[in-house]
Simulated scan of single mutants.
Amino acid sequence: MKDTEKITGTQLGLILYIYVLSTLILSVPGVMVKLAKQDAWLSVFPSALTALLTIWVMITLANRYPGLTIIQYSSKIIGKWPGKCLGVYFSYYWFSFIGVLLYGHAGYVNTFLLPKTPIWVGTLAILILSALAVFAGIEVIGRCNEFLTPLIIAILIPLLILAIGDSDPGQLKPVLAEGIVPVLKGAFVPSGFMSQFFLLGWLLPFLNQPKKALKISLISLLGIVLFLFVIDLLTIMVLGPITGKLNYAFSGVIQYIGIQGSFERLEAIPVTIWVMGLFVKLSVTLFMLCYSLSQLFGIRSYRNIIAPVTLLSMVVSVWIFKNSAEYQSYINIYSFNAFFTQNLLPLALLLIDTLKRGVNKSLL
């Protein structure tokens, strides 16, 4: 990393926003409705609790070890070799996550836009673009996202306005007919995506104004919650009970608008949004993976390993799932893995560090 490579608070906030929201709005609303039925829109709010926990833990650790990534301060907290092992696990986590993203990308694009195109074409194209962005650095990724995020929002807002005309508020009734338990069940899956604020453990050392990290993260979280709330609400009001049967429920809303309204063939729009959001998410994830490996193995520059890591990522995207059913099953249980990796492990590091500091003070 160059010493001058920094991102602004706005760039960090937009990266957090699009990183979480880009994949969340397409695949998760259907799962939420499957679990919470017409009350799925209420599940958005309890799902944000895991994000609040993640933000607090990651920023607290960053303040205690300024300028260091979670890979570096893990060794300071739990020792050199246990810290290295934890760093290897985090690297594996991001490596497998890249495979999941690429497989989901291929399946989504083939389903809605290019059914006859070989899967590897779209996967390889976006992976190469992401690798080039990683080679340019996190600062360039942040600048690209400053352009892409407002563009994505500008495309989404007219679609949401069009969906209002086909919505039926009666689909939301009865509210809390089965109590609060289904709402909490519906919050489980999005909570795993919300805890992706875990990437603060890698990005905070690049922030040019570290004192603004908490404010920036909370604003991003608020934006994510509000946007997901609106999307869930409209999806249920437009599609009703069939929402829970769709893997890409929000795309179904856009297709419905195209059929009922004056516009046709609108399925290209959610694909465009997906590709732009995934480009940012994939670039940031690939950057974190390469940066982690460079710190673990003492490589002078993370740029030296971008090419082999990109090639291996392409390979893992091919064999990670046998079919789309396995992929959907993974989405349904993703929150278990996310809670362990993105919430429990950082929290354990914070608790151990707090205990060590308490013991050291008592010995003085």
Rank of each mutant, 00 (worst) to 15 (best):
G9Y: 00
L14T: 03
L16K: 07
L21S: 09
S22E: 11
A40D: 12
P46F: 05
S47Q: 10
A48C: 10
L53E: 10
L53T: 14
I55L: 07
I59E: 06
L61I: 00
L68D: 08
K76I: 10
K80S: 13
K80V: 13
L86S: 12
Y89S: 13
F90A: 15
F97Y: 11
V100D: 01
Y103G: 00
A106R: 02
G107Y: 04
Y108V: 04
V121W: 02
T123N: 04
L129K: 00
A133P: 07
T149A: 13
I152G: 04
L162Y: 00
L176E: 09
I180K: 08
V189A: 14
F193V: 10
Q196T: 13
L199A: 14
G201N: 05
P205N: 03
F206C: 06
L207R: 00
F227I: 15
F229V: 01
L233S: 07
Q255H: 02
G258S: 13
F263S: 09
F263K: 04
A268T: 14
I269Q: 06
V271D: 10
V284M: 03
V284I: 14
L293W: 03
Q295R: 14
L296M: 04
G298N: 11
S301I: 06
Y302F: 15
Y302D: 03
L312V: 14
L312F: 14
S313M: 01
K322T: 15
N337P: 00
P346Q: 09
N360S: 14
S362L: 14
L363E: 12
